[in-house]
Design a binder for these strands. Structure first.
Lengths: 236, 236
DNA sequence: CGGTACGTTGAGTCATATCAACCATAGTGG
DNA sequence: CCACTATGGTTGATATGACTCAACGTACCG
């Protein structure tokens, strides 16, 4: 299932270049992680871990995008976030010592470092700077989650879809053809917004008629950012 | 506006008795907080801090219940959580050094300790046990938030209302008459569930007809927990 | 006794979900 | 090379959950 590693990235170099939380580590600490970590490659579509399972470590993304989602009562997936290079995932379960409460799946071929559970609490204990940054990182994610609760509870599907497109734009940027770099199925879009696939399709083509976006297959180009912001009532 | 303090609770005693995170502090640390903190009482309805404002410290609840909410695009409030004795609020803004992203309002007369901002990062640095527990606490809140996103995105209003009633039951328990201890207006219930006040009213009376709950004014008694769990697809 | 906040009910509307059919594309295996 | 299948995308028709608006009831409070 996994490919052979190409070149294993060194934590200190990697963290600095992709702005990971590990940049707050000392040389010794990052050497230790380098030694103990497990570099893994996953093909697009592979599941890294599943909701409810016990995991023995957490992941730091080096390349690729991973979607993190929960499965609702009726089996429908709700995408909680996307992780990109520099992000860590599964840290919540590791720190709380609980089974995973989300599933993580590679959206693209990706390279990740798997770091055993015990490292994280050790670092929190041994490196106060790191501890504080970790706390900030989690606080940040919590703040985002709370905003999203408010949005999803109060905004219409149309507003939320516009907002999601903007977030994807700000988080992942665009490719050479000015399309959103992240490529999602309509169903995945629906699973972020919290709506039905058909609704996403209909709204996307409305957005297109309103000259807010261009569509070609799975590619989405935002051509009127201001318009989308106004429609979504979203400000960064 | 504020009452005179009755008796200022000592952090070490208080933390142990109400299970606050400060129980992980050393005697010295808790003495220091005792010395530096500001004990405050707020009457029901008072706002402790407002979304967007800079705050110079965080609060540890000693008595009473505080609702924490965000204000949506159209001015409607979305209740994010309730804080009860032992809980801390506003820690997110303090740790991230950002303006508050929520408003906090006393649901009942309450006593709280106000602790200056700088204390929290200091403790994270000086006391690894505390740091780790703080991380867990935040992770826990994050986990709850993610679950709620999934629920609010996928469940019907009926399911969510049933779920909210159960959560209130588990979090705050019941009074001598077996009614939910926490007393909320229909509008506040709506602002947790993410729906209109009228919908809450209609659904509550349906629940009553279905012998799931009893109603008398603002008092709500859960008389069929199993039924509510089934209806809400909620398990603790 | 008027005022204010909260609660309730009914009627009408609309956004969104659901169901169903169909098309496009790509990969698979005989 | 072609049927076969799976997956994703699209469109239309229909149903309905939930919101909005409006009127009115209730209760407490100064």
């Amino acid at each position: 299932m996994n490919d052979r590693p190409v070149t294993v990235p060194m934590c200190d170099k990697c963290a600095l270049s992709i702005n990971a939380i590990f940049k707050y580590l000392t040389k010794d600490e990052s050497d230790k992680i380098n030694f103990i970590k497990d570099f893994r490659s996953f093909r697009k579509g592979t599941i890294l871990y599943t909701e409810g399972s016990r995991i023995s470590g957490f992941y730091c993304i080096n390349k690729g995008i991973i979607k993190v989602y929960k499965t609702g009562a009726d089996g429908k997936e709700q995408i909680i976030r996307f992780a990109k290079p520099g992000d860590i995932i599964a840290y919540r379960s590791v720190l709380s010592n609980e089974p995973a409460c989300t599933t993580a799946k590679a959206l693209e071929d990706c390279n990740v470092c798997f770091i055993p559970s015990e490292i994280l609490p050790q670092l929190v204990r041994s490196n106060p700077d790191f501890a504080l940054e970790l706390v900030k990182l989690i606080c940040n994610e919590l703040g985002e989650a709370n905003s999203y609760i408010t949005d999803i509870a109060q905004k219409t599907v149309r507003e939320r879809l516009a907002e999601v497109l903007l977030k994807l734009y700000y988080d992942f940027g665009i490719d050479d053809h000015k399309n959103l770099r992240i490529s999602l199925t309509r169903e995945e879009l629906a699973n972020i917004v919290g709506t039905a696939t058909e609704s996403v399709i209909r709204l996307l083509s409305e957005f297109k008629s309103d000259n807010l976006i261009e569509l070609s297959g799975r590619k989405i180009m935002l051509i009127n950012i201001k318009g989308l912001e106004k429609l979504s009532h979203f400000t960064r």
